[in-house]
Design a protein around this nucleic acid. Structure first.
Lengths: 128, 128
DNA sequence: CTGAATCCTTAAGGATACTG
DNA sequence: CAGTATCCTTAAGGATTCAG
């Protein structure tokens, strides 16, 4: 560790002065698996174990799921309950704060379902 | 150029069998600037020139904006009108298809505005 | 003014092996 | 079972230069 540490891009994440809600949002929910993970937790709306969550999302690696969960946990969007048993059991659950995102994500899923075919057709026609 | 080209990950983008609307969505609207760009076009709801758009978004590079616009154009979400003048003028505009995303993005912006402080506070308390 | 092209650095994410 | 740790490859994105 250095006394004067390098300031990386990610340290600026979600700090004070961005003031654009969309930019703020992207700084919280970004990457290939953030929304799928969050939506799975919201849809479940109950405790769910790590393994079940991973299978439920489908295709996400353990490393990636762990990272996403840590992020959401620190934001208070997801809660984590660890049971010191053997084998270990860890239960995750969407929080009340996290649930407030449901209407928005529902809207997003609905839009995608509604327009998927049209987008795909456009995409094909304009393929390079 | 090789005759047999390597199949990269991105070639699988938005192809047939994903069937998860959230995954589909991420494949279309991903990265740091996609949503801010799209939202700016939606809010503008009129023709807007490349330079004005870039300034309106704030912080996006020319290269990045061009890339995003090409993507949205190929999906039929944004239209592009080029005037072969000197100096050149290019006007972009959200399409009807693109406008259908407005309620969803409004919801997203609203959620972020509403919960920004709480998220930031949580984030600070749980900082490593 | 609107890009295209190039170079470069960092971030994202997959694969695998290992551990309590 | 639920992670950590490590290695590795590709993607994302910024900075800069150049051109019509």
């Amino acid at each position: 560790m250095d006394t004067k540490e390098k300031i990386s891009y990610s340290d600026k994440k979600f700090e004070d002065e961005s003031r654009c809600p969309m930019t703020d949002f992207i700084n919280i929910v970004s990457g290939k698996w953030a929304i799928p993970t969050l939506y799975r937790l919201i849809i479940t709306d109950d405790i769910i174990r790590f393994g079940a969550l991973q299978r439920g999302i489908g295709g996400i690696t353990q490393k990636e799921l762990t990272k996403q969960l840590r992020t959401f946990e620190s934001l208070g969007i997801v809660s984590r309950q660890e049971y010191p048993e053997m084998p270990p059991r860890v239960e995750y659950r969407i929080t009340e704060l996290g649930k407030t995102l449901k209407p928005t994500l529902d809207s997003l899923a609905h839009w995608m379902t509604e327009h998927r075919d049209e987008l795909l057709a456009n995409s094909r026609n304009n393929a390079s």
